[in-house]
Amino acid sequence: MSESLNEYPPLVAKRGRGMLRRRFRMQSELHIMALPVVLILILYNYIPMFGLVIAFKRLQVNLGILRSPWVGFQNFRFFFSSPDAWRVTRNTVGMNFLFIFTTNFSALILALAMNEVRRRGILKFYQTIYFLPYFLSWVVVGFMLYGMLNRFGLVNAFLTRTFGIEPIRFYDTPGYWPVILLLVRIWKGIGYASVVYYAGLMAIDPGFYEAARIDGATKFQEITKISIPLISPIIAMLIILAFGHVFRGDFGMFWHLPRLDRNGILKPTVDIIDTYVYNSLRIIGDIGIASAVNFYQAFVGLVLVLTVNRITRGISAEHALY
């Protein structure tokens, strides 16, 4: 690790204004390299950001966004005064935390496992297959899940035949759904997520393993002392970034799997902020309210990431976002 980009001393002294111009010129190539991304972000992300004010306005179309009247925090009232605000926030955040840790953990295990496969042919085969669920849209998965979980579906057929119990009405019982959603989520995303970790494992200099072998390390030590520590920057990055989206749910999954527009019984456990807002605004589609909720989700996400990042920085600077 001592040989990485992380510890090289700065190129020039940090003080003085003459230094500023020198630094600019010396690193001008880097500036140019960063330019495409910066330009596109300005054009497509930063310029439209004037729209953030919609959250605080009542949009009058004939006046345009900037001349429409201000209404302070009134748009936020919708969400915060709602009796369900706490429940959907809890669902969103709770499920996301669950997802973050279980999907990353399982993807990591899978990547480590694939790392042990000797023959490349078999490995490629496995890897391709694990990726298949990614290609199924939530709509399709929703239908297949229904085929399995409905009153006459596979699961109930199995249960009644083996245990002789009454069929379970999954779609009428909220309690089962956190587990169902978790399992489906892992199944669908594990192939995709494991690719990142696998790529990270590939980037590890084999020399380290060599040295470990010489030192007489066990397989377990090899994994815990080399593989994992060396991809820990990636693990850390993925988790820190995931915190930014902890208040945003995957709308497609939460909408199509429990078939939320059909029967409201499952709402207590599967209604998240995004589906709740979508549903509520279906009659009175109010862009100000939608914008306010969005702002809230983004703001909390930002605070969380900065906090987690600061903590990470305290532990190990090179693993942090910045």
Partner: peptide
């Protein structure tokens, strides 16, 4: 990735900020 790039933290934040904040569909 270049630790000695002196605008590093600014650029990181500049890029990362857009992951969370978006002007919205209509302004875009």
């Amino acid at each position: 990735a270049r630790r000695n790039f002196f605008l590093r933290t600014h650029l990181t934040f500049f890029i990362f900020f857009t992951m969370l904040f978006n002007g919205g569909l209509v302004p875009t």
